[in-house]
Amino acid sequence: MRLSAFIESVGVIGPGLTGWAHTADVLAARMPYASARTVLPPPAGLPSAERRRTGPVVRTALAVGHEAVAASGRDATTLAAVFAASGGDGQNCHAICETLAGDDRQLSPTRFHNSVHNAPAGYWSIAARARATSNVLCAHDGSFAAGLLESVCQVAVDGVPTLLIAYDTDYPEPLHAVRPIDDAFGVALVLAPQASAAALARLDVTLTDANATPLATPELEALRTNNPAARALPLLEALAARRPGRVVIDYLPETRVQIDVTMPERFGEPS
């Protein structure tokens, strides 16, 4: 079964990557990649009390979500959303484990509600005043692919634009030893059922057993394999280079997601 959607905009943040315009220049080799720690901005749109309580996961999700929605020109309050992450707030989970291992085991209510997997979706609904439905899912290292499949399904079935936000952040030791994600990475896509003047590409999505598409730059390939959300990089590279063709991204151990990318000048041609 093949499903289709149109990408209208992108948001990106990650190690040495600050926004889609900068990331596109790096991925299209218009400028060199210089790895650096991810710089997360304050979470825009939140009241001061909630803003102080947010951790890296929420800040990553909100940063890319705001960028993608602003670039699309759509109304965030009515935009359906899908959130995808392989885990939650690792630093917050570490702090909870430290508390539970100590003598005083009383947990902060803020730490508790930030520990749940759908916390970024809740903060997004406040920050963006979003009233549409949102889904939150997890598929370990295949979380971006799972989020993309869910988003494209919603676009195809419901016929409405959908915002996909995928994100993962690093874990401190000793959790890092068993989940070695080194830094935060997030990506957001606004997907629509019909082509518009803003459409960057059409995606035709299906399942495959082909190998995932690697990146030629060793540092970017290392990022792709280190952070589950960064499995999106081959797709982002095709968009950045305006290169039609086929990319494959990781999903399940025996199954990957194949994405056929068509540029706007060829939307009228049969897929």
Rank of each mutant, 00 (worst) to 15 (best):
G122A: 08
V205L: 07
G159C: 06
D158T: 13
E173V: 13
N118H: 07
G159R: 02
V205R: 00
P218T: 08
A121P: 11
L203C: 04
V116I: 14
L203A: 07
C138E: 05
T133F: 10
G186Q: 06
E219F: 04
A139R: 12
H176I: 02
D204P: 10
C138V: 14
A222M: 14
A121M: 11
A177Q: 10
S108P: 03
T133L: 09
A184I: 06
H140I: 15
G147W: 03
P180R: 01
H140T: 15
L137H: 06
V205A: 05
Y171D: 02
V187Q: 08
S108T: 11
I96R: 01
F185Q: 02
A201R: 01
R224M: 10
R131E: 08
A128C: 09
D170F: 00
A119I: 02
N92A: 13
C93M: 14
A156N: 12
A210F: 03
V155N: 04
T206Q: 02
A212V: 04
T133G: 14
L149V: 14
H117P: 08
P172G: 10
L203E: 03
L163K: 08
Q154T: 13
H117D: 10
P193F: 03
L148Y: 00
N114I: 02
A197H: 13
I165H: 01
T208S: 11
F112R: 04
E173I: 12
G142I: 12
N135E: 05
H140R: 15
G122L: 00
A212D: 00
V152A: 09
P193Q: 10
A222G: 13
V157I: 15
L164K: 03
T206C: 05
G102V: 10
Q91L: 14
L223R: 05
T217S: 11
S151D: 07
T225G: 12
T99R: 12
L203F: 13
A128K: 02
R131M: 14
S134P: 06
P161K: 07
S108A: 09
I96E: 00
D168V: 01
S151T: 15
S134G: 10
L100H: 03
L191V: 10
W124Y: 15
D103I: 12
R179E: 13
D183G: 09
I96D: 04
T213I: 07
L100C: 05
R105S: 12
L200C: 04
H176S: 08
A166H: 05
S134E: 02
L200I: 12
V157R: 12
T110A: 12
T133V: 13
R105G: 12
A210E: 14
W124L: 01
T225P: 00
S108H: 11
H94Q: 14
Y123R: 02
E98R: 14
D209N: 02
P161W: 05
G122N: 05
L175R: 07
P120I: 04
L148E: 07
L163M: 09
D209G: 01
L189A: 06
D204F: 11
E219W: 08
R111A: 15
A222V: 14
S115P: 04
D182K: 09
S115M: 09
A201G: 04
A146Q: 13
N135F: 04
D183V: 09
A166R: 05
P109L: 11
